[in-house]
Every structure is written in structure tokens, then in C-alpha cells.
Amino acid sequence: MSSIKQIPVVEAKRTNPLARVFDDLVRFCRSRSLFILHYCTGCGAIELPPAMTSRFDMERLGIQPMVSPRQADILLITGYVSIKTLKRVILTYEQMGSPKYVIGICSCTVNGGMYWQSYATAKKLDEYMPVDLYIAGCMPRPEAVIEGLQQLMDRIHAGEANSWEDYYRNYDYYLGNQQKLFGEDWQTPTDVISEAKHYDLLSNGTLGDHTRLLEQHQKPLEALEMRLGHEQKEPAK
């Protein structure tokens, strides 16, 4: 389900050649300007400072670290994800702005790694959110990290790195896996379904049993619309 290959890449039918050039420029800029949010969960974090600083210098490629999920393009998860952490990872992922990319670094994100037998560790990251790229290793060297990032850049430029759409298209699947782990009353502050509608990404997999379960207990998350109404509503004493 989470495999990149299964995602139908819908090529926008644009006849205007200028629009094509424009799209290409946008894709190029997206690939050359990547802000990463490193969610440093495990030991892999130690490989990032060398990748960023003078030895390998990620800024050459236009990659720089950012602080809050709103600003970031890449969610970099650098190690084992405990269940408690995973809640925060999902919260963070949902708050990021699309197009967004997830990179799992270290074996732990691929299959649990050395924490395979741990009761408190989420084994496969891509069951809970679409992952664009795994960089395996325990831990991968900075060269490998940069190599992986470059692959991602190529894919973004080619317009293939669209896994973020998968989260909206198959939200029910991901939510189901999350509910399995966190219980039925699991809810994030982000209203994913309304976002899917907003991006026109509502498809068969978006809604299902699990989202129905969510809706039963969900606290409303509609934005506080600006109201101009003057009619007197007596405040409840």
C-alpha cells in the first residue's frame, strides 16, 4: 500500500508550453531548496552534524535545517521510533506543509532494527505514514545520508516524489494502523480529511471504517472563522 510505485502519478494536462516551463522551474526549485526537520530519535542523529557542517556541507545542495514543522519539507527520522515518540512524529508529519517528504534513517525505521523484540517500538515506519526514502545502515555514514538526499532531489525534480499524496488518498489505512497502536480514541490536532478535500485528494481509501471510528469521538477542529455578527448573544453566566 505504501509502495511508491502504486501511486498513480497524475500528470497535469497543460497545453501551454510556458506553463510546462514554469512547472519545471517550480520542481527544480523544490528539489534545490529542502528544509529538513530532523526528528532525532535514536543514535542516527549523531551522523547529521557532520553532514551539515564543514566536512560534507549539505547547504551546498540547498539543504538546511529548520526548526518547526510548518517550515520544513523533509521529516528526517533518525532511528528507532518508540510508540510514545510515534505519536509526536505523526503530529509533526501532519503539521508539515506539502509537498513533504519523509526519510527514515537507520535500520530501526525500516524494520525495528535491534529493537525488533521491543514491545514499545514501532517497527515499520511506513505503516504509519508514507516514507519516501529509507537510508539503511546502523548507522549510515554522512556520505550515505547525502547520497540518499540526492536521490530524493532527483526524484523531486522528476516529479516522482509524491508520496505525501498517498497519506491523504489512503488515510484510512494509515489511521487504522495508528489506531491499532494507540487505541481507538487516537486523534491528532490536524483535520486530515478536510485537508484531503482541500487538496482534491479525496479518494476511495481516504474514508473507511477507521475514519468513521475517529469521527465518533473527534473533537471538532474547524478553524475559528472570523465572525461579523452583531446579534446579541448573552454570554452564559
Binding site: R88, T190, A223
Partner: peptide
């Protein structure tokens, strides 16, 4: 590009789940 309004609790809090 069009903005999407979000609820005020959908907010950065260092990974913390905000409640009203």
C-alpha cells in the same frame, strides 16, 4: 496558492498535543 485555515490548536508545541 490558496491558504487553508486551521484550528488554533493545530499549532506547534514541540510535539505536544494541545487541548482547549
Amino acid at each position: 496558492g490558496r491558504s487553508k485555515r486551521v484550528h488554533q490548536l493545530d499549532n506547534y508545541a514541540g510535539g505536544h498535543f494541545l487541548s482547549a
